[in-house]
Write a protein that binds this DNA or RNA. Sequence first.
DNA 1: CGGCATCCGTGACGATACTG
DNA 2: CAGTATCGTCACGGATGCCG
Lengths: 231, 231
Amino acid sequence: MSRLRRMPRQQPAASRPVRRRSYDQFCASARALDSVGDRWTLLIVRELLAGPRRYTDLHADLPGVSTDVLASRLKDMEQGGLAVRRKLPPPAAASVYELTERGHGLLPVLAALAEWGAPALTERRPTDAVRAHWFALPLLRALTGLTREGVLEVRLGEGEFHVRTGRGAAVGSEGEPYGFGPAPRPDARITLDAELCLELGRGDVTLAEVVKDGRIEVAGDGPLAAELRGE
Amino acid sequence: MSRLRRMPRQQPAASRPVRRRSYDQFCASARALDSVGDRWTLLIVRELLAGPRRYTDLHADLPGVSTDVLASRLKDMEQGGLAVRRKLPPPAAASVYELTERGHGLLPVLAALAEWGAPALTERRPTDAVRAHWFALPLLRALTGLTREGVLEVRLGEGEFHVRTGRGAAVGSEGEPYGFGPAPRPDARITLDAELCLELGRGDVTLAEVVKDGRIEVAGDGPLAAELRGE
DNA sequence: CGGCATCCGTGACGATACTG
DNA sequence: CAGTATCGTCACGGATGCCG
């Protein structure tokens, strides 16, 4: 009576053309998710939006990703035209991954995700990793009102990063909208803590308010620093 | 010499608290992906953005999703506060899933994905499924310039849907930005083909151009129809 | 019949070890 | 340093069964 149940539930699936998994929908969002919907892919993009990086550094800033998955995603991203692998000039003898223009086009997607996810970013769980440049997207949102073009260095307790302000931060501009570490020649510098970055990104407080409060410290003497101080 | 290699590669993983898989990063984008980064989740959201739907209808419009995964995602979305299950009034004896306000907040994410994915949506592969309302996001992008509030019914070869125009389509407005099928009392109606929807969404052509060309047909006599015709 | 639950085969994922 | 190899586990997709 139960022998019949063992019958061929599934064809051996032979000769299927090993198609990469796709949603197979004629829909723009579905096509986008075919490219960036796999686990870790968008977080790798988030990393590369801050500038070219080496494999090992990517692995270090993405705790939890396994080496083979990272290698596989980078390969997929190369094949998909999102990133390229570039050899550094001779003395370095290393190679870095960097986004193509198509890859940079994902900034609005990451920004929308960050904006939506910000309210859920209240408690910092003990298992959570943190990197300073992860706060660049929330902060960029709070700086969209700035008119002066320039590079702003940001110092957090967790580390440093820098962002481009003014139209230079707009989508489609050459260069990264934000980057790791200190800037080569910043036009201004601010010091604040990560929590304040998030509040600014959520719009809970305005830039002008926290400058007055002293919760944010502005250094520099150029026009960008002046605008940050409120003239 | 090779006996040592068989040693415990992995702890039995006992007593791990069965944590739902999270990226464990104190980052807004990562938190967002903890909620909506699983396979199919954002496409379910895309469906529900068009209005409440029953389980079976969702399954029908998401070819390829297995029944258990769909049930599991819907449960996750309920638990995550993205959607609720609501019983229909007695005669229907069915229940529908609908987005919460938090869930509706994902519209900008889907819109950004659709915008980024649009250039990749050139050839329609023979394996691709199609639904009319999947073209609502690209079309909405082309209609952001409209000032008149109202409901616009859209007729494609593949079926019908309707979109809200004017400030009513803005994020945070009550009601869905777009919906399945014909509208109850549309303020205007347009007829075009899916390809044109995509061209409009990509910005390859403007609304005014295609109205003049006759590639788009505008029906109705209210102010919205007039604005669509270019006064 | 709608709304799942169960079972199974395959593939993706995560951790670790190993190699050029 | 930058991956590849290997392995255990879990997620996914497909088919089917159950239950109100």
